[in-house]
Design a protein around this nucleic acid. Structure first.
Lengths: 338, 338
DNA sequence: TGTTAGCACTCTCGGGGAGAGAGTGCTAAC
DNA sequence: GTTAGCACTCTCTCCCCGAGAGTGCTAACA
């Protein structure tokens, strides 16, 4: 059964009104506040049909309607008009972003803060990862004391990893420098397995153990995903968290490391594409009240994720374009960096 | 007016009982559950005196007593018997800690998690900083593409900082290497001001701009404090946060960057010393319901902070020795690293 | 003089209406 | 197909009341 035009209008109004007020929407409220030119009785009839078809529900008999997940989905898919990011807002955002150009991690964390502020929900940003994700670009050895050196690895996604390595033979900085240069020649662009293989075929010297440590660093790096999150305390002010149990639940759930499963859903998305996952569409059973708006940024060389996480009652028409905008900005900045 | 022995006993019992139950403590409860061998009427008399002297208070006429900040202070100072960290607990902790030896940042974040788990409150750990805090140990240049290099600075506290530098003259990795070696000779152990002065007296070349960027990195690094925090969602389960407003307030307040003022109070503490700051002793007016147990770890070369933050109703006898134990472990590990 | 039993008093907390209000679904008329 | 009217349902809030917990005071006792 396809939605008649009027029912679609009413559904749209129900969603907008509910998103704004967080109260079940009555037929009368729609007529009075949204200027429908039919009577509330007609609206009630239509609402009953919408409920039959699964777009809205009833918390109890004498309450207004709230959108179901299907209702939100339909709204996002075909009823909503996106609210574009205004010129002023664009200017503010780019201005804030350019404050810290140069240091990727500060820049990512700032992006999460800006996005969270723009949409009033929790924002998550992941550091861009290269497709190969885990090849060495360069390594360096720094003398700390006669029998310890600091091994610094620059990975192909521009991230650094460090580790202390004990030296059996004391070495000066100049000697370490030479050694690093030699190893760079052999290890450049290698992945963990390659480095491991190389270490295996070397004699048991300090150099072999450095190669072994490097292999470990590379593999460690492959698995590590760095996420930046902000906006929690503001998101918790929303009425869905008025109950302390729910609030506690949200806090526990939004620990960065638990978000991964939420973000995985968009791993295959193309940069430029923005996905919306609503309520029961989320794989995680215990997150049925949540929605995620998610986009990938970057290009075929290196890509990361930007997302907004919040209750299903979310201002999708604001959130979606803002996630998209931030993602495109980040893609641009990432290109500029190279 | 000095506390009589019996009043001291009663105060101690009130604190212990209240910490355990989170309910105001009645005279009857003390006699029944804590085995005092006087009548509840006598206890009531003593409680009235304790209240006159400011050690305990009354939420309302017909409720039991709860400790005041002075009551907790007295308890911590002279009534409490510390609950030592058991052998099993020690083993568990050291075992967990040794899982990640080698990578300082993972190790710090794990420490926060372990401590939070051990005391059931929020734990905060800061990365050790050197006293000079902001001298360069070593710099390195890595070629990214013909006109950009990655500047990697190893700071004297072992932390890395990176920045992209544009090159006017394209350079190969080998050339960059030479350049880095030359600059290292001139910049070694310099602070930000020194590097800045050096840049000023150099001709306007790529090298000068690298030195300038390095100066900025050093100064940036000086100001940066890295804090690791864990245990929030567990701490929020305590009854003091049953009210959603209070919970929200706590979440907003415990954002890592707001904790600095709390931790500053112990900046002058010696490693080995554990400080307790209770309620109104905290400088921050809006944190009067909170207590902080704090210790410094490290030595005269490099030191950081370990702290537990929670409601004034805190199991001090458990928390204090655990903070101290973790701090001493960290000091040890830090020594081993060098 | 310190301790204790007894008792009146105070305050909170939870449950149980009761009434107001909001909103629906249905019916009948237009 | 639309609408007015109306009975009905359900929640929400307020208020009241009784139970219970705990105190402070007084007077008796050791």
């Amino acid at each position: 059964m396809v939605l008649t035009e009027r029912r679609a209008t009413i559904l749209g109004l129900v969603v907008r009104e509910y998103v704004q007020t967080a109260e079940p929407v009555s037929s009368k409220a729609l007529v009075d506040r949204r200027g429908l030119d039919v009577s509330s009785a007609t609206v009630r009839n239509e609402m009953a049909r919408l409920e039959d078809e699964g777009y809205i529900t009833h918390p109890h008999t004498s309450a207004g309607r709230i959108p179901s997940d299907l209702g939100y989905r339909t709204y996002v898919q075909s009823l909503m008009a996106e609210e574009p990011v205004g010129v002023d807002e664009q200017r503010t955002i780019t201005h804030q972003l350019h404050q810290v150009a140069g240091a990727l991690d500060e820049w990512l964390s700032l992006t999460a803060t800006i996005l969270a502020g723009a949409v009033g929900n929790v924002a998550v940003v992941t550091r861009p990862r290269t497709v190969t994700a885990g090849r060495l670009r360069h390594l360096q050895l720094v003398e700390l004391n006669p029998d310890t050196a600091l091994l610094v690895a620059v990975m192909d996604d521009g991230r650094l990893r460090q580790r202390l390595v004990p030296l059996r033979m004391p070495a000066t900085q100049a000697q370490l420098q030479d050694r690093a240069a030699r190893l760079n020649a052999r290890l450049a662009a290698m992945d963990g397995a390659g480095a491991r293989a190389l270490a295996a075929e070397m004699a048991d010297t300090d150099e072999a153990s450095i190669v072994r440590e490097t292999a470990e660093l590379i593999e460690e790096h492959r698995g590590a995903e760095e996420t930046y999150l902000d906006g929690l305390s503001r998101a918790l002010r929303q009425p869905e968290f008025a109950d302390p149990d729910r609030m506690l639940d949200a806090v526990a759930r939004l620990q960065a490391y638990r978000l991964r499963s939420l973000l995985e859903g968009a791993a295959d998305a193309q940069p430029g594409e923005t996905r919306v996952v609503i309520g029961n569409e989320l794989a995680a059973d215990e997150m049925q009240d949540w929605s995620v708006v998610i986009a990938r940024y970057g290009d075929s060389d290196a890509a990361g994720t930007v997302a907004v996480v919040g209750p299903t009652r979310m201002a999708y028409e604001r959130t979606i374009p803002r996630v998209r905008y931030i993602a495109s900005l980040m893609g641009q900045l990432l290109r500029d960096m190279r």
